[in-house]
Design a protein around this nucleic acid. Structure first.
Lengths: 164, 164
DNA sequence: CGGCATTATTTAGCGTGCGAAATATCCGTC
DNA sequence: GACGGATATTTCGCACGCTAAATAATGCCG
């Protein structure tokens, strides 16, 4: 099964940028997943384990903020990790609504055994760029992100209150 | 609920690039989903409807290749779309293994009613860049993607055959 | 103190998304 | 024309990932 030659010369610049971003994002997820599988973890579980190792205990909300997922999503992830004895839940004493997620010994051991952070390859590729290239990339991508954010704000305002 | 000020000046360039890419990707998905909801569709369903409208009938494999998902994933999406009477499955006469996915009248009408393509905002933001900026972006992102691809090949080779 | 909006987490329901195995069909070869 | 390897699709089981609603605890205000 030969890989399909993407024939980029027939695509517009915009399409190429889109494709690169989609590729980079999905590939980074695939990589995390690949790495995780060697430790019998899933992608998100590896992310959580590494995060707890580096930062220490986190409340569920803090955790979901950092991995950019909804609380309800993280609840499920933590459920499964608790089942596998990788983390424990501990009610906060100051605010009994809060649950802290803590690595178990097993979880910590696992985290230490995994040599690279998730996204390491991704990061490595970015770091192999020249300083000027990184600067340009930051500048241009930042600009794109800002414009998207503006358009989004306009879009959602239309769909919601009126004026559309 | 004020949006959290991201304070980008404390992040490394690499982190900023990562963050921008993640933001752009997830935002583009969120936008598609948002758009879709107005037509009572899900994100992937909107993508499929628009794709079939523009390209015409596609086999399930062609479809899954274009939306970058596994066949098994697309089978499920098409199942639900068929249930909603948006598409039909038709066995190919030449090769009876192949199933063509075709828009129903209802599906086509829906596709026509949705004014913007998915990713339109995303595309608009990219098009608002200067030609030079787009050129740079294509060049640098392409380079990053190539390096990632190389590292990936190395990684997976290690994990598989040996030498790791 | 009692009520009430707010906040943290969980539950429920649904739709992806994947990998592996099952099914059906095609194709080349004998 | 049967056989065996390839190809297209589906089925199965599991893990996200989301929204909306439920639950539990906090803090404020009178």
């Amino acid at each position: 099964m030969p890989p399909p030659p993407v024939s980029a010369e027939f695509k517009s610049d915009v399409d190429q940028v889109l494709e690169a971003i989609i590729y980079l994002y999905t590939e980074s997820r695939r990589l995390t997943k690949e790495l995780a599988r060697r430790a019998d973890l899933t992608g998100p579980q590896l992310t959580v384990v590494k995060m707890l190792e580096q930062i220490g205990d986190l409340s569920l909300s803090e955790l979901s903020e950092r991995i950019r997922a909804q609380n309800s999503t993280v609840t499920g992830i933590i459920d499964r990790m608790e089942r596998e004895n990788l983390v424990t839940r501990e009610r906060s004493k100051e605010d009994r609504r809060v649950v802290y997620i803590r690595l178990t010994a097993k979880g910590r051991k696992l985290a230490e055994e995994i040599p690279v952070e998730p996204m390491e390859i991704f990061r490595g590729a970015l770091e192999s760029l020249s300083a000027a290239e990184v600067r340009d990339l930051v500048k241009i991508l930042g600009k794109v992100a800002r414009r998207v954010r503006q358009s989004v704000r306009r879009e959602t305002a239309e769909g919601d209150s009126g004026k559309g």
